[in-house]
Nucleic acid binder design. Structure first.
Length: 889
DNA sequence: ACAGGGACTTGCAATGAGAACC
DNA sequence: GGTTCTCATTGCAAGTCCCTGT
């Protein structure tokens, strides 16, 4: 509950500023999350991910290594899994060396009934397989990538896109639900602009359900459209074009032309907005369009137009307040501008209301015990004690580092003469119990009460939710200032448990358009640290992170905004561009595996790993962060060479998620790794000549704008595109969705996106099995009845001794068939669930899979887009909704 | 070259809300 | 109609990578 908030008093906070520095040394003992723990502790089976939590309870076992030593830490034995191959490039497989040989057959989810590991493993393999289909494998692998690649490229590529499709696109015939109005507006524009490829129709307001709109527009849903789409399934053959280059350039270029925007906003609009709302719809950046089409520049500019929409709002009664909108005056025009590059102008006018602060702390007065006796605490002291008390059943309480850091900070607030002298003698239970009660009370509130609260909160926050960027109303992402709390670092973070002090207005820098009113500081008597008018950045506000004052916390627009959409699109365009370069890049690094120049050799091998395994770049980290690594920071101990040519990886990556994988690599790579390791200690860097700056500088020579992370996007999207086109068969929508999920899962595995097993997983599986058993018994009985019925006998009595209805054999057969189908479906669910228990599909969907692949596939196969994208993804990917059915990554 | 500031993307977990279930 | 389950949304930590000043 809210109890935790603290008064704005500075006190707490200030003190801590300085001490961030925690001790440099820390041990990495247990892992933080369960996962981690587990991972470490348990050894898992083969699959890479292994890890996850199995049983663990949360204890941590610490291995106790010091940070530095950490390097030396030992990991559990790795398991080998097969790997997946990275590249799944379209054709893939074969050639790619990347892929490891797979042994097992691919198969889908079904197959995987096996136990987890297995399944997981299989899955990976499957991927591989897939790719390999043709397979062959190994041999090829070895071959020069280039060669393979070439193929790839040749085949699949499509470069197209550029042209916008005009007609097709969006249409939305369907009336919108509620707001027709809006939609129209939005739609119209699109069409009109058509040429641009993407126009975003963006929903204008987030408030409104984008979904609906999109849906409507959407393709799949409507038959008609669908049809049309189906027609074309062709994929463009075009090849790469210079356009790419342009694209790149554009990236850099600033868009000078900013377009016009419509009415710049006026001041106050936001506030007032009550009346208006609605946003804009479409905006898209034309740039995109442009990009797509090769020359973007010119066209882009020209095309802008603005649309204005007016709408009225219907304010829904309370329930939907969220959706309420008003008519908006801001419309969006399509403006050109790309914005990508840095230094470039990102906006012309920017109006917003700043940020909202958490409420001050309200003391609850519940006394904790010290050596069994109640203690009086000041509100400041109580606030921090409560933060700690509330974390009683988290894994953090098992960590000495957490407790130590907390104690250090809390002690400062208590003062040296306080009765409380040792954390061990503290008993926070009374506060914990009070907290649980509050939680319970909250849960018990009636719907009306809950709604009233919600509405109240909404009222308070509404004005902060929106910004007007170049005349268009856009949702703000995180307008709430982070409340004070105990820092929850992931993994063995040396600063876990430290007090994250309250942020005050004087910590915050506001960025807003010139000439518009500066947001009023919500806390009387205080003021902002600074007000800037920097239109080369997209943040609306920032403050220094209290835990690490060198870092910042920014307030940005929401993912659904056009600014974000634009850069998202650029990201994918860059990854698509890589398609045209990948063959040469692979050829080049393959050649350098044996270079005499050590740095070159390291760059080659690192690039290979990044390409093949989708590893992250691996920037250097400070000692006051969790000890995790990426490609460039791999340590000798993280890779084990297994003769004749396999590498076993085992390290903690981003978020301290363990990466475990054993892969067969090309012999020169194997030899190079062995060489890099020779004469080094386990904790020494594997790539001693390398860092991400050098690596990226090199990549940029191969393709403009290329950096290590582009490979992840590329491999993820290529894999999806390929699997979808290869595996989608005619059939029911549900089956197609399964194909999609399978591809999505493959990508998640490639990217090592994990999630912890839910607490109820086992119970759920058990329940499912029980149901299946029950159905099976049921079926057995029916079969008996069927036999009897065929012989003209009446059915036996049921378990309760009651008489059953006398059914005809036909009826019984039908019933049996139904149950069989049901059982089958449940078995499938069970497998899928088991299979996905540690795989997180969401991250790749949000960050790595080009939404146009999905949109095009949905159009081609008449799958409603809402089956794949939820409401927020639809909003985020509004820029991709008019992808042509034949779009290929 | 390089360290470090700075801006933005990516990622898992916690929350919350709605759907399914009993 | 309340409870449990699911899935979407939010929160914020943790990466990547660019850029600048020295």
């Amino acid at each position: 509950m809210m109890a935790l908030q603290a008064p704005i008093k500075p006190s707490v906070s200030d003190d801590f500023d300085d001490d961030d520095d925690a001790p440099a040394v820390f041990k990495r003992s247990s892992s933080t999350t369960k996962k981690n723990l587990i991972k470490t502790e348990v050894k898992k089976p083969p699959s890479q991910r292994n890890d996850v939590l199995l049983g663990s309870s949360g204890l941590h076992s610490s291995n106790g290594q010091s940070a530095r030593s950490q390097q030396g830490k030992v990991h559990p034995s790795p398991k080998t899994s097969s790997m997946r191959s990275p590249d799944m490039s379209p054709k893939a497989s074969s050639s790619t060396a990347r892929l490891p040989p797979v042994k097992s057959p691919p198969t889908g989810l079904k197959s995987s009934k096996s136990p987890d590991d297995q399944s997981r493993q299989s899955s990976k393999q499957s991927s591989v397989v897939a790719t390999k289909e043709e397979s062959n494998s190994d041999s090829d692998d070895d071959k020069p990538l280039s060669s393979r690649l070439q193929d790839n490229s040749g085949k699949s590529r499509t470069m197209p896109v550029l042209s916008p499709s005009l007609g097709k696109v969006s249409l939305k015939d369907s009336p919108e639900d509620s707001d027709d109005e809006k939609p129209l507006a939005s739609r119209l524009p699109q069409k009109s602009y058509a040429p641009t490829s993407s126009n975003n129709r963006y929903a204008s307001d987030e408030k409104k359900p984008l979904v609906s709109k999109t849906q409507q527009n959407g393709f799949a849903s409507s038959k008609n459209q669908a049809k049309s789409s189906t027609l074309l399934n062709k994929r463009p053959l075009e090849k790469t074009t210079p356009s790419d280059q342009l694209l790149i350039k554009k990236l850099k270029i600033s868009d000078a032309s900013t377009s016009t925007k419509l009415k710049p906003s006026v001041k106050g609009e936001l506030e007032s907005d009550d009346d208006d709302h609605i946003p804009i719809s479409q905006r898209m950046k034309k740039p995109a369009a442009a990009s797509a089409s090769g020359n973007k520049s010119s066209s882009a500019k020209g095309s802008m137009k603005k649309v204005i929409i007016k709408k009225k709002i219907t304010k829904p009664p309370t329930k939907n307040f969220k959706k309420v909108m008003k008519k908006s005056k801001y419309s969006k025009s399509t403006k050109v501008t790309p914005t990508s590059g840095d230094g470039q102008k990102k906006w012309t006018t920017l109006v917003h209301n700043g940020v909202i602060f958490p409420p001050p702390y309200t003391p609850h007065g519940v006394k904790m015990l010290y050596k069994g006796k109640p203690v009086n605490l000041t509100p400041e002291q109580e606030e921090v004690a409560t933060m700690y008390a509330v974390m009683k059943d988290t894994d953090y309480m098992q960590k000495d580092k957490f407790k130590e850091n907390f104690w250090t900070d809390w002690k400062k607030i208590l003062g040296s003469n306080h009765v409380i002298q040792k954390l061990e003698h503290c008993d926070f239970t009374p506060i914990y119990d009070w907290y649980q009660q509050e939680k319970e009370k909250k849960k018990q509130m009636t719907k009306e009460e809950k709604n009233a609260l919600k509405e109240e909160k909404m009222k308070l926050e509404e004005k902060y939710m929106w910004a007007i960027v170049d005349g268009v109303k856009e949702k703000v992402g995180n307008f709430r200032v982070e409340p004070p709390g105990l820092f929850r670092g992931r993994g063995e973070h040396p600063k876990m448990g430290k007090l994250k002090r309250r942020i005050r207005p004087r910590d915050i820098t506001i960025n807003i358009g010139k000439g518009v009113p500066v947001p009023e500081c919500p806390i009387p008597g205080e003021r902002w640290k600074e007000v800037r008018h920097d239109n080369t950045v997209t943040w609306l506000a920032f403050w220094n992170d209290p835990i690490n004052p060198k870092e910042f916390k920014y307030v940005f627009l929401a993912a659904s905004s056009s600014l974000k959409g634009q850069s998202d699109k650029e990201k994918y365009e860059k990854a698509r561009m890589l398609k045209d370069y990948i063959a040469n890049i692979r050829a080049a690094y393959t050649k350098d595996f044996t270079s005499k120049d050590a740095m070159k050799r390291q760059i080659a091998v690192a690039t290979y790993l990044i390409d093949k395994l989708a590893l992250r770049a691996g920037n250097e980290k400070d000692d006051d962060e969790a000890d995790t690594v990426g490609c460039c920071t791999l340590k000798v101990e993280n890779v084990k060479a297994i003769s004749p040519n396999s590498l076993e990886f085992n390290f903690l990556g981003k978020d301290s998620i363990r990466y475990e994988n054993t892969v067969e690599v090309e012999l020169p790579v194997y030899k190079a790794i062995v060489h890099f390791q020779s004469g080094k200690k386990p904790s020494d860097p594997l790539f001693d000549e390398l860092d991400t700056t050098k690596l990226n500088a090199h990549l940029k020579e191969l393709m403009p704008g290329l950096t290590a992370k582009v490979f992840r996007t590329y491999n993820a999207s290529v894999t999806l595109d390929e699997m979808l086109s290869r595996d989608t068969k005619d059939g029911e929508v549900g089956e197609k969705v399964v194909v999609y999920q399978r591809a999505n899962k493959e990508v998640a595995i490639i990217c090592n996106h994990q999630r912890s097993i839910s607490k109820s997983h086992v119970a759920q599986m058990t329940r499912l099995q029980e149901k299946i058993d029950e159905l099976q018994d049921n079926m057995k009985e029916l079969k008996g009845d069927l036999d009897r019925a065929r012989k003209g006998k009446p059915p036996l009595k049921d378990a309760d001794g009651k008489r059953k209805r006398n059914l005809t054999p036909e009826a019984l057969e039908k019933k049996i068939a139904q149950i069989e189908a049901k059982i089958e479906k449940m078995e499938r669910d069970k497998t899928t669930r088991e299979d996905l228990k540690t795989v997180a599909l969401g991250t790749s969907k949000i960050n790595y899979l080009d939404p146009r692949i999905t949109v095009a596939w949905c159009k081609r196969h008449e799958v409603p887009i809402e089956k794949i994208f939820n409401k927020s993804l639809l909003a985020k990917f509004a820029w991709a909704m008019d992808a042509e059915p034949d779009f290929r990554f």
